[in-house]
Design a protein around this nucleic acid. Structure first.
Lengths: 252, 252
DNA sequence: AAGTGGTCTAGACCACGTT
DNA sequence: ACGTGGTCTAGACCACTTC
């Protein structure tokens, strides 16, 4: 049940369909340049706007990517495998490694700490207040950059009462990261919940993640609970969906 | 005499931004109609294509939805909460309930069995062959429809050697579903792995899920392993991302 | 019947990247 | 310098929904 190509398929869909088939069948390889607006106008005898519309379809599907002044190219990607469960075991952060280390072995990674600050009241999203049970929190805002491209934005919220005076309130949280510090204070995270959504980014979000058109984001909201069942961290992550595969292993 | 539009931001982005703000601040409620092309042309003194482009931005972000002949409307969502782990415990399918029952309590659900067939060789995706270790498989293709809208497409693959002669090869798998039948044969699924990706759908996929523009899909590839560690099922699911929140609970 | 979005044309100027 | 995609205009006809 593909195309159906029935009587009245719009021209731009027809053109887009032909290009899509060519990409799928490898006639245009990842990274290769596709026929441009002028090529399509000549080849199919259509107006510029119609050729544009055809290329826009492929970009909206995430199959192609326009580079100003250069052309439209077939997209290529190589996703990061993020293991949702093993990566959070104490063996990971207990040994002085951050959980992120578990994800990528030998690629050029930079973790930028954008902000570490104490906030309260209206400045804290009400969903976070509800989960943590307090509006007095420390916030850590970070950006993860892989091979020069931002792949994830992250905001972690910690109850101020638990982390005041620890390195969690500083740029460098020390060996093992924030979870190791929480454990030293007797609030080791033991139970986790991750909620996953996906949607298209706003213009602003697309800018901050340098997303190509047609790329969704995945939103992960993680809550970490201590042994007593109290929430000790809420972490809102926004991932470039083209850069990630999430993996969860569990017993039935 | 064009333009030059005072600032660097294109007109259509300016118009889209104003509408986006209005939506965020509740001046247009979910389901409500937005100003149409003609309204925007008059209000901002622009050409039809420019007004269209502004509305296209909001649709691409998943914020708005066009209905032919009617107008452009603010989208509304009410996601299904899919619990990735508890839903697959033996208590669920062991008691004669299908795992799906765990997701939605009181909404109008229909599970359509599209196809049940034996396939082999080239007809089986090579990724599936690699995991199951055989190219002789039974396939079950289903569609899940909630409140009249398709929300998930699913294809399950089972090794033919394990399921031949069982109700898994028929339309109705019986109480507890396929997993209960596997358990009766001594191949109870015990370990699961789910891989999650997200991307924009192709035109064909959007049609089959009746997706609004600007809606990504989430792809879940689940592999079920028996106690001996052999793969007994591979399930490829494609979900309407606007209809789902995935949830995973686990210990550190 | 009126209004809506969907498609399409045939021009134009611009900012940008490659050459 | 040239070709590329990005933006924009001012028209047009169509299919569809709503009244």
């Amino acid at each position: 049940m593909t195309t159906a190509g029935s009587a009245r398929e719009p021209k731009y869909q027809r053109i887009a369909g032909a290009l899509r088939r060519d990409i799928a069948e490898g006639r245009y390889a990842p990274g290769e340049r596709l026929p441009g607006e002028n090529d399509l106008m000549a080849e199919h005898a259509v107006a510029r706007m119609t050729a544009r519309q055809a290329l826009a379809v492929l970009q909206a599907e995430g199959l192609a990517e326009a580079r100003k002044g250069a052309g439209v190219f077939v997209r290529e990607f190589e996703p990061i495998r993020r293991r949702g469960i093993q990566r959070l075991s104490p063996e990971q952060w207990g040994s002085g490694r951050s959980v992120w280390d578990a994800d990528i072995a030998e690629r050029d990674l930079a973790v930028e700490v954008i902000a570490v600050s104490e906030v309260s009241g209206d400045e804290v999203p009400s969903a976070v207040v509800n989960i943590l049970g307090t509006a007095e929190v420390w916030l850590r805002r970070r950006r993860f950059v892989l091979d020069g491209k931002p792949v994830m934005l992250s905001v972690s919220y910690f109850p101020a009462a638990l982390v005041a005076g620890t390195p969690i309130t500083e740029t460098d949280t020390g060996p093992g990261g924030a979870y190791a510090r929480l454990a030293e204070r007797g609030h080791a995270p033991e139970h986790f919940r991750e909620e996953i959504r996906s949607r298209m980014p706003t213009a602003d979000e697309a800018l901050r993640l340098k997303l190509a058109a047609g790329t969704p984001v995945m939103l992960i909201w993680r809550t970490a609970f201590s042994a007593e069942g109290t929430a000790v961290e809420v972490n809102e992550m926004m991932l470039d969906a083209a850069s990630y595969v999430l993996e969860y292993d569990f017993e039935g």
